[in-house]
């Protein structure tokens, strides 16, 4: 199997063709260091999503390292109204990832937080600005920076995509149903490259699942109802595997589906892509 990528839009002259195992890939320019940012709940509860993200990026020729000192981006506190209490966390994050050319995370929500809501750190404004330019959610890094256009792999399943709000409307990873704009979806763009994958159209293409961080607990009844409604949309359209770019939303949906013994499987998009092309 091959992984062809029209990699990297700059410095094309320093691309190198490599043969690593069975893959023919473009290698990222050697001077580009990618820092892997694994959100705290992924580290603690979904290590497989972290592993899939790392392996996927490596298969695509990237030099990735995971800075061991990383903790959390501060989002849970900030969204609960305690942004002012996250200066320590933000400063730590900034220092941890200072030296990387790119920072990639399998979570739109955490990336959005870093870009939009992390409090300003006095004296580090320049570093912070530069961080905002070089941090990417995984799918947008694949489509916009690596410019992945032809993934070779097969995933013969009916897949429903949950467009998590923070990635979708915050990072604009896809066209939003409220806006008058041409259709696009970075998730779909990647998934449709896999043989046999059937992209399932939903009735409400980008409705919130009701996770919302602390909302899931403070507004428990609403949160669960919203999750149930999302699941119903996927189930009535015959989805086998529900995927998305944020495992937090998926954790919530999976929790409800399991409790109600609903026949759905759940995977992060990194897990699908990594599994399919290996």
């Amino acid at each position: 199997m091959f992984v062809d990528i029209l990699a990297f839009n700059v410095q094309a002259n320093i691309f190198q063709y490599l043969n690593i195992h069975k893959y023919r890939i473009h290698k990222m320019p050697l001077n580009k260091k990618i820092g892997l940012f694994i959100p705290c709940y992924v580290d603690q509860f979904y290590p497989n999503v972290g592993i899939a993200t790392l392996e996927l990026l490596e298969k695509l020729g990237c030099q990735v390292s995971y800075p061991m000192g990383q903790t959390c981006c501060g989002q849970p506190m900030a969204n609960a109204g305690y942004e002012w209490d996250t200066i320590g966390t933000t400063k730590h994050f900034l220092k941890t990832f200072l030296d990387y050319d790119y920072i990639v995370a399998p979570s739109g929500s955490c990336v959005l937080h870093i870009k939009d809501h992390a409090p300003a750190i006095p004296g580090m404004e320049k570093e912070q600005e530069s961080l905002h330019q070089k941090i990417f959610e995984l799918t947008e890094f694949l489509t916009d920076i690596l410019k992945v256009e032809t993934l070779h792999g097969s995933f013969p399943h009916r897949v429903g995509f949950h467009a998590s709000c923070h990635g979708h409307r915050g990072l604009r990873l896809g066209s939003c149903s409220e806006r008058n704009e041409p259709f696009y979806s970075k998730g779909k763009q990647l998934l449709e490259q896999l043989d046999g994958l059937e992209w399932v159209e939903l009735t409400r293409t980008d409705e919130c699942c009701g996770f919302g961080g602390t909302f899931a607990v403070t507004e428990e009844a609403l949160s669960v109802q919203m999750g149930k409604d999302r699941l119903e949309d996927h189930l009535t359209h015959g989805v086998e595997i529900l995927t998305g770019g944020d495992i937090s939303c998926i954790m919530h949906l999976e929790g409800i589906a399991k409790r109600n013994q609903q026949p759905l499987e759940f995977m992060h998009i990194a897990e699908i892509l990594n599994q399919a092309i290996s």
């Binding site: 694994i38 992924v42 580290d43 603690q44 509860f45 979904y46 290590p47 497989n48 972290g50 592993i51 790392l54 995971y66 061991m68 428990e220 669960v224 999750g227 954790m251 919530h252 999976e254 929790g255 409800i256 399991k258 409790r259």
Partner: peptide
């Protein structure tokens, strides 16, 4: 109350790495 918790993994990503 109305949701299962995720299964607890053997190790964190950090440990695996």
């Amino acid at each position: 109350k109305q949701r299962d918790l995720p299964e607890t993994p053997k190790e964190t990503f950090k440990d695996w790495y």
